[in-house]
């Protein structure tokens, strides 16, 4: 056996056990009518679960909710993160401390962050609504039409640091010479930013946005901690809906079909974006 095969073997084995096998098993499950409460009646039903999923308005709602959530959250995180990264880059005093401190939210377990904001934003007991009430403002953060935006806000609070981290690394990795040339040419700071910084940063930006968007699609903890999908189904994200179907309603077959459809969507997005990133890397 060749040396490189010996090195690869453990990885292949564990990868097969923890990713490959479950992936295939999930596909099998998605073709059955498997329910935890009716284990012995399991049989293959073909694509019935997929058809049921596609006909389920709640599934489409969940996709829409998740899509809205991802777009909003990543958009805000990107712009906010970019400005913070720029500010951090120019900052002169107590740099390391500021950086460490601003990055902390991304290292905390999301369920704790979810519960924390549930506590802080609660209409009766939360400190933020209480202060707002002193100025005569009444705002129910988790009320109808508002809860999803509050979840977005929490995501922004926790994950903007991740954007900052990647963008800052990108900014500091840029070569100095274009900036020095711009300085010699007398370009304004804003012009330099628009015409030099942003274009040079495009590869890093696309990676950061891609990673963050794919991660945001998995949002679960905030919903689990705070709204459980409500009010009604306004915060029913895809991950939470699948969890509910599979674990609370015991329909593993249906839930597997749901997650497989999601997987297909995610893979399509990844392949398209991956190709794009590859091609911009090759012909910048």
């Amino acid at each position: 056996m060749s040396f490189r095969l010996k090195l690869m073997l453990p990885l292949l084995a564990v990868f097969t056990a923890s990713v490959g096998y479950p992936l295939l098993y999930a596909f099998y499950l998605s073709l059955t009518n498997y329910k935890i409460t009716a284990r012995y009646n399991t049989r293959l039903v073909g694509l019935k679960q997929y058809i049921a999923t596609l006909q389920d308005p709640n599934y489409w709602n969940a996709l829409q909710v998740t899509g809205t959530f991802v777009l909003l959250a990543v958009f805000i995180e990107f712009w906010l993160g970019l400005f913070i990264a720029l500010a951090l880059q120019k900052q002169k005093r107590i740099r390391n401390f500021t950086r460490s401190f601003l990055l902390t939210p991304m290292f905390v377990t999301p369920i704790a962050i979810g519960l924390m904001f549930r506590f802080l934003l609660n209409q009766q007991l939360g400190v933020i609504p209480t202060f707002m009430a002193k100025f005569g403002l009444s705002y129910d953060f988790f009320g109808p039409g508002k809860a999803l935006y509050s979840i977005v806000l929490i995501d922004v609070w926790q994950w903007t640091p991740f954007m900052v981290l990647l963008l800052l690394a990108g900014l500091e990795g840029l070569s100095r010479s274009p900036f020095e040339a711009a300085k010699v040419d007398g370009a304004s700071a804003f012009f330099t930013f628009r015409k030099i910084t942003l274009p040079l940063l495009v590869p890093v930006i696309s990676v950061a946005v891609l990673i963050r968007a794919l991660d945001a699609m998995k949002v679960f903890e905030y919903v689990f901690a705070i709204t459980r999908g409500g009010p009604a189904i306004q915060t029913m994200t895809i991950q939470y809906y699948t969890y509910q179907t599979g674990i609370q309603f015991y329909r593993l077959g249906l839930a597997s079909a749901m997650s497989y459809l999601l997987l297909i969507i995610v893979m399509v997005i990844v392949v398209i974006l991956f190709r794009r990133i590859e091609s911009t890397r090759k012909n910048p």
């Binding site: 095969l5 479950p22 098993y25 699609m217 895809i238 699948t242 599979g246 999601l262 997987l263």
Partner: peptide, 27 residues
């Protein structure tokens, strides 16, 4: 080893929705 498809496979594994894998694990 395996060319660029190995690399892509490893990248793709990172973005798998957890909901896909969790039910088989449970079973």
């Amino acid at each position: 080893t395996g060319g660029s498809s190995t690399r892509f496979g490893i990248l793709a594994a990172q973005v798998l929705p957890p909901a896909v894998l969790v039910f088989p694990f449970l079973e």
